Simulated scan of single mutants.
Amino acid sequence: MANEDSLQEPQHSIQQILEAETNDFMELARIAGLDIATDFAGADLSGVDLSGADLSNADLSNANLSDANLSGVNLTLAKLSGADLSGADLRGTNLSKADLSGADLRGAKLKGVKLKGAKLSDAKLRDTDDIDANLMLYSINIAVLIGIFYIILCHPYIFVIFLIRKIRSIVKSDKSEISDDLIR
């Protein structure tokens, strides 16, 4: 009897999903009693249309979202570490403060994506479509600044040697310009 009751609940949920008059993934997940914040880590959501959905704070770590339509989705503070987002449409998506460490974004469409404060360590960004050059420059500039601060704080003598050499090269180039002017 207990087995029969335990089978009726999933059968009822399946029946509700089949009878639902929607193709909206978020609505179907709600009908099934699933919580996007916790129940989709590691899930296979490849090719799913989630466009315009609010997935802020969702745990989609290690999920397969390859070729999914995530355009205009709010993924603020989402956990997407290790997720497969290859070929996904992320145009206009808000990924502010999202954790994309180790995520595969190869071939993804990233035009207009907001990445302020996002963690991108070890993320694969090769062959992405329309990625803003500003993102790459921003990441590179931050890395350079961190390196410079590290050298200044931990090894100030290296920084001083660098400055002395730079000043010497400027002085030498100025002298050569002056001597070239005298020869003419």
Rank of each mutant, 00 (worst) to 15 (best):
E21W: 02
T22R: 03
N23F: 15
N23R: 11
N23M: 15
D24L: 04
F25M: 10
A29I: 01
A29D: 02
A29W: 00
A29P: 00
R30H: 08
A32K: 00
A32P: 02
A32E: 03
G33S: 01
D35F: 06
I36H: 09
A37I: 14
A37Q: 10
T38D: 12
T38E: 13
T38F: 14
D39T: 12
D39H: 14
D39S: 15
D39Y: 10
D39N: 15
G42Y: 05
G42Q: 07
L45D: 13
G47Q: 12
G47N: 11
V48N: 11
L50V: 14
L50Q: 10
G52M: 12
A53Q: 12
A53I: 06
D54H: 06
N57L: 14
D59S: 09
D59R: 07
D59E: 09
S61I: 03
N62Q: 14
N62E: 13
N62H: 13
A63H: 01
L65Y: 01
S66W: 00
S66C: 02
D67F: 06
D67K: 08
A68S: 11
A68G: 07
N69Q: 13
N69W: 05
N69E: 12
V73A: 12
N74M: 01
L75K: 03
L75Y: 02
T76M: 02
T76F: 02
L77W: 09
L77F: 09
A78Q: 04
A78L: 03
K79D: 12
K79S: 14
S81C: 10
A83P: 04
A83T: 12
L85V: 10
G87E: 08
G87C: 07
A88D: 08
D89V: 04
L90D: 05
R91H: 09
G92T: 07
T93C: 11
T93V: 09
T93R: 00
N94P: 09
N94Q: 11
N94I: 03
L95G: 05
S96C: 08
S96V: 14
A98I: 06
A98E: 04
D99P: 04
G102I: 03
G102A: 11
A103M: 05
A103R: 01
A103G: 07
A103P: 03
D104N: 10
D104P: 05
D104H: 06
R106A: 14
R106H: 09
G107Y: 04
A108V: 07
K109Q: 15
K109D: 15
L110Y: 09
K111T: 15
G112K: 15
V113H: 13
G117T: 11
S121V: 07
S121G: 13
K124Q: 11
K124G: 04
K124C: 02
L125A: 05
L125P: 01
R126Q: 11
T128A: 11
D129L: 11
D129P: 03
D132K: 01
D132P: 00
N134R: 13
N134V: 05
L135V: 03
L135F: 04
M136T: 15
M136F: 15
